[in-house]
Design a protein around this nucleic acid. Structure first.
Lengths: 150, 150
DNA sequence: AGGATCGTTCAGTTCATACTGAACAAACTT
DNA sequence: AAGTTTGTTCAGTATGAACTGAACGATCCT
């Protein structure tokens, strides 16, 4: 009993929505992303609201977030007044870049703490350093992956 | 004007709490983790509640989560009835392992979708595959980092 | 046994955040 | 100019997760 393709599509969009949610994006933003991945072509603003059954306000904020992260591109069609959206050319590289930035920031934040610990507190310093190193390692791993993608 | 060490300690604990929160842990769990990183030694259950100014119920659930993820260890002291908690020996490796597992699961979930797409839909399949590859790459990068830690 | 202390559980509350939908300004159409 | 259509904004609402604190069983102490 094969699942109809339209159902597979819905499931996929929902999966991307849930995953994105667990990665700090609003769920609707994730669903927009999933829809654009699946459909590939440029989708109109109003069409997004209708197909995902959410308010235009939600589409407005979701697309802004995705645009800010450079995961999607806003375009226009001649003779059409609506905005159109499609996947950026390199969305996954952008995702990795964003993650790497976050890790980098986290590390710097921890390093600020590190500088406030006097030399005398060697053991504390060692443990906090280990925590900082964790972020550095992660960040490095992501950055390396990013390079192999180009 | 140097910051007193106790203040640096509080700031650190709060930072770990916030970072953990953005990574899907309850904030209190993150603060427990920060406290244990800073102090290093084993801390009593009641002491955690008192030092972090939260209810014992919160400590109970936070420690359970951290234990499940193998980030901390529950121990006892002879003659003492309270449970004691301290950092696991390899908490950062455990964190990485957990992250890798999540990515792996995400990928498998996407691959399930992939199998439901008929061959005829080559372009859709290609785009969904690219999404799956993203998770695979991340997962691989984390796994590689994990190896270098041992 | 009686009393104290411990960790867990769970119902209720709090709190943060996503989402809605109406109001609005801008740009287009006629 | 009047009327549409479009995207944004923002106040209000809904939703879900975290947290509290009281109740509980278990364990220890005397």
């Amino acid at each position: 009993m094969a699942k109809p393709l339209s159902q597979t599509r819905c499931d996929f969009i929902e999966k991307v929505g849930l995953k994105s949610q667990s990665e700090g994006l609003p769920r609707i933003a994730g669903r927009v992303l999933g829809l654009l991945i699946w459909d590939g072509e440029a989708i109109a603003f109003g069409e997004l609201a209708q197909k995902l059954q959410v308010s235009r306000g939600s589409i407005s904020s979701a697309t802004r977030i995705l645009e800010d992260r450079r995961l999607i591109k806003r375009t226009t069609k001649p003779g059409q007044r609506q905005d159109y959206f499609q996947l950026a050319e390199n969305p996954y590289a952008q995702m990795l870049g964003g993650i790497a930035d976050n890790l980098e920031r986290a590390m710097q934040e921890i390093n600020k703490t590190l500088r406030d610990i006097p030399e005398a507190e060697g053991e504390i310093k060692a443990r906090v350093t280990a925590y900082s190193d964790f972020y550095q390692q992660m960040s490095g791993a992501i950055a390396a992956t990013l390079k192999t993608m180009n």
